[in-house]
Amino acid sequence: MNVFRLAGDMSHLLAIIILLLKIWKTRSCAGISGRSQLLFALTYTARYLDLVTNWVSLYNTVMKVFFIATSYATIYLMYLKFKATYDSNHDTFRVEFLLLPVTILALVLNHEFSFMEILWTFSIYLEAVAILPQLFMVSKTGEAESITSHYLFALGSYRLLYIFNWIWRYYTEEYYDLIAIIAGVVQTVLYCDFFYLYFTKVLKGKKLQLPA
C-alpha cells in the first residue's frame, strides 16, 4: 500500500458515495446510465469472487464487500426504487459491443488460463470501458448535472491515481502487471475529454454543457 493507491481507493469510494447520495437525496437517478452501473456490478462481481479464495487483508476484504454491495444497491435504486426517474431513452449504448470483445480478449490475453484468472482479466478489461454508456449518455443529452460531473471526476481520478501507484510499485517493488496497467491507461484516457470539460466548466461554476 502506498499513498497513490490509498488516494485512488478513496477517490473510488468517494465516487460511489457521491452517486448514491445524489440518487438518495434527489430521489432521482436522472442523467445516470443504468447500463454503466450494470457493467460495474458485473465488473466487481467477476473480480471479487476471490473474496472466498484469496485473503489479502481486512482492508482489502472490507473494500471488496463495499464495492460489490454498493454496485447492487445502485442497481436496486435505479431499476426498482426510483425506476420512474431513470432516463432510459437516453441510455442506449449497445453494451454487447463492449461485452463481446472484452470476453474474447480475456480468453486470449490473460496471465493464466484458469477460471478465476479469466474472470479477473475479464473484469479488468470490462472496467476499462464500463463508463462508455455513461459518457455516451452525457454526449447524447449534451449536458450533465454538477453532481454527476463530480461523480465522474472522482471515478476517473481513481484509475489515474492507480497509474501513479503502478509506477511507484515498479520502482520500489519491481512489481508490475501489464494487463492492469494497459487497461488502466485505456480507462484513464477515456476520461481525458471529460476532465478537460470538468476543469474548464464545472470548476468555474458552470454546468457541464457540450457545444451543440
Binding site: R5, D9, H12, R47, D50, N54, V56, N60, M63, K64, F67, H111, E112, E117, W120, Y162, N165, E174, Y175, Y176, D177, L178, A180
Partner: peptide, 10 residues
C-alpha cells in the same frame, strides 16, 4: 520481476 497472478489490488 512480475509477481504471478497475485491480485492484491482492488
Amino acid at each position: 520481476s512480475e509477481v504471478e497472478t497475485n491480485h492484491d489490488e482492488l
